[in-house]
Simulated assay, not measured.
Amino acid sequence: MIQSRYLFVSREGKVVKIVRPKNHKYKSVPQLAGEDVLEVILYYRNKDRKPNELLMVGFDRFRLDSQGNYVQTEEDRKRAFHNFHSFGMADLLEGIEDEKEDKPLPIPVAPIIPTTAEKRSLYDYINEKLPNFSDDAPYVIENKIKAAKEKYEEFKSMARKSRNPSK
């Protein structure tokens, strides 16, 4: 069975396990109040009801309020899907030149990449709390980062080509 675990990583390297958000509302994390945090979502497979194999990770970054709360807004959700909506169906829209000329060119949103300190804190947490993931975690996390950077470069290239279609 595939499960997920949500973590917040502070700029100082503190890792806090959080409850899965419900209806885009996160439970308060008072110890990280007022801080910018990296949200890490670990997707893994269980074996005998215990975390066994890390499959994928996801990253997001946001600021918690003075009580340690964060509620995802519609604007946050739009930002998260901006690149997909702007560039995901590019092949289907290439033939519609009239519409392209009337609209400003979309600018791709940069991927959320953890800092070296955040990755180190995350690896330390995994080694301590989820030792079954220790071997796979660096590979899975670094591949996620590499794929996000490559996709971002692809989106930037698409934006440049749409601006100068003769190239």
Rank of each mutant, 00 (worst) to 15 (best):
Ile2Ala: 08
Tyr6Ile: 04
Val9Ala: 00
Ser10Asn: 06
Glu12Thr: 13
Glu12Gln: 13
Lys17Thr: 11
Ile18Asp: 09
Val19Gln: 14
Arg20Asn: 07
Pro21Met: 03
Lys25Cys: 10
Tyr26Trp: 14
Pro30Ile: 04
Gln31Met: 12
Glu35Cys: 05
Glu39Phe: 00
Glu39His: 07
Ile41Gln: 03
Tyr44Glu: 00
Arg45Trp: 05
Asn46Arg: 06
Lys47Ser: 08
Lys47Tyr: 14
Lys47Met: 05
Arg49Tyr: 08
Lys50Phe: 03
Glu53His: 11
Leu55Lys: 11
Gly58Cys: 05
Asp60Met: 03
Asp65Ala: 01
Ser66Lys: 07
Ser66Thr: 13
Val71Ile: 13
Thr73Asp: 15
Asp76Phe: 00
Arg77Pro: 01
Phe81Ser: 14
Asn83Trp: 09
Phe84Ala: 03
Ser86Gly: 08
Phe87Met: 09
Gly88Lys: 02
Gly88Asn: 05
Ala90Asp: 04
Glu97Pro: 04
Asp98Glu: 11
Glu99Leu: 10
Glu101Trp: 06
Asp102Asn: 10
Asp102Val: 04
Pro106Phe: 01
Ile112Gln: 03
Ala117Arg: 10
Glu118Trp: 00
Tyr123Lys: 13
Asp124Phe: 04
Tyr125Met: 15
Tyr125Asp: 07
Ile126Arg: 04
Ile126Leu: 05
Asn127Cys: 09
Pro131Ser: 10
Asn132Thr: 08
Asp136Met: 07
Tyr139Met: 10
Ala148Asp: 15
Lys149Glu: 02
Lys151Met: 14
Lys151Phe: 02
Tyr152Met: 04
Phe155Tyr: 15
Ser157Leu: 12
Ser157Val: 03
Met158Tyr: 10
Lys161Arg: 10
Pro165Met: 06
